[in-house]
């Protein structure tokens, strides 16, 4: 009887203390783990906020850059031409008929030049073909425009049946492609740039490749905001942007747009 009694006490005591410790341990684990998770979540939220701030900063910077470029184009090219036109118009009144006719012809050619430049600026802002026909046609038009100069050659290729995406997505992708092409023209020293557009069920992939001198990716990523800016702009439309380059092996940029 006594042995049975002490056994029961032992089992009860050990069991209850064990259960109490187990429950306490589980609660402690739960509280500690929850705290850690909360800290992690706060860190993730902070990173997300920083990323959004960076995207916003880059967007504002690129808008400012674009405005500056347009202002410069208007001031240096269109403004200068129009000043000459104004001078000519003022001179026409005081000239003989023969000289006035000559000045009028000269003024007309200046005005033609101004019209061409305004068209160029307008096209650079929003290519009409992009809105009407889509991304692939706008890229082909960009290539034709660059090919007119004979300094560099752009080859356009297309795979799959073309389809349209949201205009905002297409415009951002076009802008980024345009910047990649501009960078290649300005800095790569390439003779040929190829633009390949692939249409698939998942979306559109644009691959822009040049045969220029290339650059060290790490160095560029650390020093300049340009690449980050392009990445941020693509992130804003939930698209992906990747760039590969090695000194002496040209540069490849890949843009992936989902449907």
């Amino acid at each position: 009887m006594k042995t049975g009694n002490s056994d029961i006490i032992l089992v009860y005591f050990l069991g209850t203390v064990g259960m109490l410790l187990l429950a306490g341990g589980l609660l402690f684990f739960f509280i500690t783990y929850q705290k850690r998770l909360l800290v992690k979540q706060l860190e993730i939220n902070k990173i997300k906020q920083d990323q959004q701030r960076e995207i916003l900063k880059n967007t504002i910077e690129s808008q400012e850059k674009e405005r500056k470029r347009i202002a410069q184009d208007l001031h240096d090219e269109v403004g200068a031409m129009l000043s000459v036109v104004k001078l000519n118009v003022g001179m026409i009144e005081r000239q003989t008929e023969e000289k006035a006719n000559k000045l009028a012809c000269e003024t007309q050619s200046y005005l033609d030049e101004v019209i061409t430049q305004v068209r160029g600026i307008s096209r650079a802002l929003l290519p009409p073909s992009l809105e009407k026909l889509g991304l692939v046609y706008a890229l082909e038009e960009l290539a034709n425009w660059v090919n007119m100069s004979d300094k560099i050659r752009i080859e356009c290729r297309r795979k799959g049946e073309p389809f349209r995406l949201d205009i905002q997505k297409e415009l951002t992708a076009f802008r980024v492609s345009q910047e990649v092409v501009n960078n290649a023209i300005k800095h790569s020293g390439a003779g040929i740039i190829s633009i390949q557009t692939r249409f698939s069920n998942e979306g559109i992939a644009i691959v822009i490749r040049d045969n220029g001198k290339g650059f060290d990716m790490k160095e560029k990523m650390n020093s300049g905001l340009g690449l980050k800016n392009l990445e941020s702009r693509m992130e804003m439309i939930s698209a992906a942007f990747k760039m590969k380059s090695r000194p002496g092996y040209g540069t490849t940029a890949i843009i992936c747009l989902t449907k």
Binding site: V11, Y12, G15, T16, M19, A23, G24, L26, L27
Partner: peptide, 9 residues
């Protein structure tokens, strides 16, 4: 958690 753990035995 605590009540039903401790009264289990």
């Amino acid at each position: 958690l605590f009540f039903y753990s401790t009264i289990f035995f």
